[in-house]
Design a binder for these strands. Structure first.
Lengths: 199, 199
DNA sequence: CCTATCTTGGAATAACCGTTCCAAGATAGG
DNA sequence: CCTATCTTGGAACGGTTATTCCAAGATAGG
């Protein structure tokens, strides 16, 4: 009996993700979302229920659609250290050039915002952090099994360090940092983890 | 002949710094600054000239008063790698406990905000980045002269890497990261830079 | 003491924020 | 085709935003 939605919620959510990602969540108004999606305020509120929930949904969708696949590719890459290097090369490239250049990472950006303190948002930030850290750990363990790593390296700590390094790359790229500089920094960390023979 | 100011501009600016640092610049309204400083809107605008300029002044003051002294202490510390380790230990301690716990770093936070794109703000961010990187480089060169570093370490790249690591510590601490985890990550990076005999 | 000149307090303003509401429109089962 | 039920467009709302303005007050040189 009832009417059905005249639009695709996921498509609309993707538009919101783009806005929040590029301009910043706090700087993006509902009016901007209305204009970008083409749908009305009524439909927006009926579907997502307010800006806070829309932000949480957008952040979660960014994590699952933008971050997760890359993390899974890293964890599945059996090359070890070269897999991690490739991850960072593609990360830096995406952050400094192309369609999303200088946008940073929506999750990383959210860390510094006021909304980053809300429990529901915080939970997504932690989920993102754990996902990346675990992927790094898997890649490092593969590298260890292949004898690519220093014997005394703490894999757990190294995974955390690389995850932190990725956050900083996201952050600094938004402020215009050069790709070569970011890559050199990442490589310095990675080189410190590998065996002398590997270098 | 004219009247003089009935307040100390620097004291008022410090109050603004505290607000921007804790709550976030975008989330802090002029009304909040008025209340925290105790002075009126007229005096605020006559002295600082609008929120954008107030933000730039506050960010610059944070850099000179909060960051710069710590950077200079790092550069002046002749211990080398232990000096860098001490820098990070105090950083993590300050970010996770005490008066400013979970506030992050005002400069780091600003990277992710919309205002971080404005040229005047961007210039301060770069100034901060260069200051920390140079301090790291000086400490690393001291360490190198003392034979504490791996022979093939690129000091320039290592300084960038440590600077990036500091940003990530600032960022993640605001989201509630544990001090021990952050320290372990930092130590993993630092251990990778030192000679095997030092470990 | 007087007056030119700045500072100060606080009201006023216009734009914008997220959110709500309701009449009109669209849909699909009966 | 009819109708119950949801969706949609768009106006409206109260609150907050940064900013401006002006009369009243304070200051210090003459």
């Amino acid at each position: 009996m009832p009417d059905i939605k005249h639009f695709d919620p996921d498509t609309a959510l993707d538009r919101a993700v783009t806005l929040f990602w590029q301009r910043g969540t706090d700087a993006t108004g509902i009016a901007d979302v209305v204009q970008a999606t083409g749908l009305s305020r009524s439909s927006l509120y009926a579907t997502f229920g307010g800006k806070a929930q829309l932000q949480a949904a957008a952040l979660s969708r960014y994590l699952e659609l933008r971050s997760r696949p890359v993390f899974e590719a890293l964890a599945a890459d059996i090359r070890g250290v070269p897999a991690i290097a490739a991850f960072f090369e593609r990360l830096v490239a995406a952050r400094c050039a192309g369609e999303h250049a200088r946008w940073g990472c929506l999750v990383t950006n959210t860390h510094a915002t006021a909304s980053g303190g809300r429990p529901e948002i915080r939970e997504i930030l932690d989920r993102h952090h754990d996902a990346l850290r675990m992927a790094m750990r898997t890649a490092l363990e593969t590298a260890r099994a292949d004898g690519q790593l220093r014997a005394d390296l703490d894999v757990e700590a190294a995974a955390e360090a690389l995850t932190l390094q990725a956050y900083a790359v996201n952050l600094r790229s938004r402020a215009g940092a050069e790709a070569a500089v970011l890559l050199a920094g990442v490589r310095a960390v990675l080189d410190g983890f590998t065996t002398t023979e590997e270098r």
